[in-house]
Design a protein around this nucleic acid. Structure first.
Length: 259
DNA sequence: ATGGTAGCTGCGCTA
C-alpha cells in the first residue's frame, strides 16, 4: 500500500495537476490538505472517474482536507476531537481496507504565525488535541498513520536556511517541543526513520525564487504507530512535482507499507 | 531592511 500526503494549495486551481499526478504516480491513498473548497465544490466526479473513493472535509475559502483511495474506506471521521467550538476543517480519518486494515489520519496543522499571538496559541492548542488523539490510537495497538502538513520544521537541518525561520511559528522551540512530544509517545517519523538525514524539503515558497535557489523546508510528515512502523518499507519525497507547470508550493511525501 | 507570489474572494486574508 502506497500512501501520499500532498498539500495541493487549492483543489480547483490545481485540478489539472492533481489529475495528472493521480494518473501518473497513482497512489493507493492520497491525503490532501488545503483543498480550499466546500464539500459541494470539490471536483469529486473527475477523481472518482480515476478509480478513487473521495472523502472530504472542507470549508469555504481556506483549509480543508480530503482522503482519496483506490482501496475501500470505512469509518470516516471528520474533525479533530477536543474543541466543539473549532470550525476550521483540518482533520479527517478513515480506515483503508488493504491486505490488512490501516487507519489513516490526514491533518493540516495550523501555521501559527505571527508568534506570539492568538494564532500561535491556536496552533499549540491544536497540537495538544492532536497529541491526545494520537494517545487514543496508540492504545489500540493497530497500524495507524498520521500524515499531512504539520507546519513544523523538526530540526535546523530540515531547512535550507535555518536563520530565515528564527522566531517563526514553524521552528520556534515550543513548536518543536510539541512535535517531539508526539515522537516521544512512541510514534515513528517515517522520513527520518529511513535515515535520509538533512537537506530534503517538501515546501518551497512561491516568493523570492525559493524553488530556483532550493531554499526549502521539510514540514510534511508521516508519523506511524509501532504497528504501522513494522509495516514500513520506504518513505520518499516526490520533489520533481515542484518544478512542473503551475505547481503547489508543497510536493507529495510518500510511504509504502507492507499492507 | 524590504519585498517578493499564489489562491480565494470580492480589493483583504492566509500562507
Amino acid at each position: 500500500m502506497r500512501i501520499a500526503s500532498f498539500n495541493i494549495n487549492g483543489v480547483k486551481a490545481r485540478l489539472p495537476v492533481l489529475l495528472d499526478w493521480l494518473t501518473e504516480s497513482a497512489p493507493d491513498v492520497a491525503c490532501l490538505q488545503e483543498i480550499k473548497s466546500v464539500d459541494d465544490g470539490f471536483p469529486r466526479t473527475e477523481i472518482e472517474d480515476l478509480g478513487y473513493q473521495v472523502e472530504t472535509h472542507g470549508q469555504k475559502g481556506f483549509n480543508g482536507v480530503a482522503i482519496l483511495s483506490k482501496l475501500p474506506l470505512e469509518d470516516i471521521s471528520r474533525g479533530l476531537p477536543g474543541d466543539e467550538s473549532d470550525e476550521q476543517a483540518r482533520y479527517i480519518e478513515a480506515t483503508v481496507i488493504g491486505s490488512r486494515p490501516v487507519r489513516v489520519c490526514g491533518l493540516y496543522l495550523p501555521n501559527g504565525n505571527p508568534a506570539p499571538g492568538p494564532k500561535y496559541d491556536y496552533k499549540l492548542a491544536w497540537m495538544a488535541r492532536l497529541e491526545a488523539q494520537m494517545r487514543v490510537h496508540l492504545a489500540t495497538e493497530e497500524p495507524v498513520i498520521f500524515c499531512g502538513d504539520y507546519n513544523i520544521i523538526p530540526q535546523d537541518e530540515d531547512a535550507a536556511t535555518p536563520s530565515d525561520w528564527t522566531g517563526d511559528a514553524l521552528a520556534l522551540p515550543e513548536s518543536r517541543a510539541a512535535f517531539r512530544r508526539m515522537l516521544a509517545l512512541g510514534l515513528t517519523e517515517a522520513f527520518r526513520a529511513r535515515q535520509h538525514g538533512g537537506g530534503h524539503y517538501s515546501f518551497w515558497d512561491y516568493q523570492a525564487g525559493a524553488w530556483n535557489r532550493n531554499n526549502g523546508i521539510r514540514i510534511d510528515h508521516h508519523l506511524l504507530t509501532p504497528q504501522a512502523a513494522d509495516l514500513l518499507r520506504d518513505c520518499w519525497i516526490e520533489k520533481d512535482q515542484r518544478g512542473r507547470e503551475k505547481p503547489s508550493d508543497h510536493v507529495p511525501v510518500w510511504i509504502e507499507l507492507d499492507a
